[in-house]
Design a protein around this nucleic acid. Structure first.
Lengths: 186, 186
DNA sequence: GTTTTATTACCGACCGTTCGATAAATTACT
DNA sequence: AGTAATTTATCGAACGGTCGGTAATAAAAC
């Protein structure tokens, strides 16, 4: 290897940053190479199926993070539901970098992305709803109300991310996370 | 003119459809030409500054619609505030085609769009908030609560549009509009 | 010395954009 | 009114540049 070669973590994090901020079509191979610390052709060595495989890897990488730091936390039997919810929300704040990073589900739901990732996006969103439904039930909400709350939670997260990016102020995202917490715990 | 030449309405509606569904970078001149009924070169006759000018025209066109059918309605002194709000929400449903069409503010807030349209997106969102703040005050909310409601209204609209597109079911959008109405009127 | 990884050079396709020619609509002149 | 002159609108073809993707080669690692 020439200078100091790309750690896998640097590669995946670079790809993630580009896909999240520019979407699928907006992310050029040049961008992806620059952000990952590899040359274009080297990326093709690691991801022989090209751009789509890179985006898949990012999707999977984020899904793993969410699985561990949100979904699993939400059903960790060692903790009280109220605590689980709070930790999960804190981790969501990390996931979206306090509102500065866009959700990959949204980033890929524009333009060409919806054709390539439609099913994965749909499944991903359904999982979010499902997990928040469960924590709602565990917090003694009726299944109906738990469903309402779960949907609203997703809407709040996605909507506040849109507003935060559009207006350029992370206060909206912060406040929204607190509101979600309040809705469940008060 | 040769066959039956492109009505301006067909042109702007076609461009709108493409930019909203594909974003700025995702919208190719080929797409835009096909959707507008004009050839690429003809588009450049109408929009000498190219793609950016086309997107500007779409932005302006939608802003006009919103101004007339949402903002102006919300402060139409001939109607009671409750009625104005309801009509505005109905028109919002039309604007977003019942949840099937993405908001241009969101479509352009990804990727390259945010560099080109950042200021316009920010101003557009602020106007939405401002107008909903006012109707809240007219409905006898305190300025603080009116601000909360306005922000939440925007979050609800944007968030439900994201979910609706991701999950592929317009129920979420419909329900959200009803919830907004309820929040103000109950 | 073979295999794995990285890099340079390159490919055809498509990108946004422009040019030049032509047809249609409008204006000017009689 | 009729016709010539001018402007406006449309389009095919092509531009340079970048796109995603690929060989061929060099370097590292084993």
């Amino acid at each position: 290897m020439r200078p100091q070669k790309a750690l896998d973590k640097e590669v995946i994090n670079g790809l993630t940053e580009v896909f999240c901020s520019k979407g699928y079509e907006g992310a050029s191979l040049q961008d992806l190479a620059a952000a990952s610390g590899l040359k274009k052709a080297s990326l093709y060595h690691r991801f022989p199926d090209g751009k789509k495989e890179m985006a898949d890897a990012v999707f999977l990488h984020l899904h793993d993070f969410i699985q561990q730091n949100v979904f699993d936390v939400l059903q960790d039997d060692n903790l009280k539901p109220e605590v689980r919810l709070q930790i999960a929300l804190d981790n969501i704040a990390v996931l979206y970098d306090g509102g500065k990073r866009t959700c990959i589900l949204r980033a890929l739901s524009m333009e060409a992305g919806i054709d390539l990732f439609g099913k994965q996006i749909q499944d991903g969103m359904k999982q979010w709803i499902e997990r928040f439904e469960r924590i709602g039930v565990e917090l003694n909400l009726s299944t109906e109300v738990a469903n309402d709350y779960a949907l609203q939670t997703l809407i709040d997260i996605q909507g506040s991310l849109v507003l935060t990016r559009g207006i350029g102020n992370t206060n909206i995202f912060d406040r929204t996370l607190k509101n979600i917490s309040k809705r469940y715990l008060e």
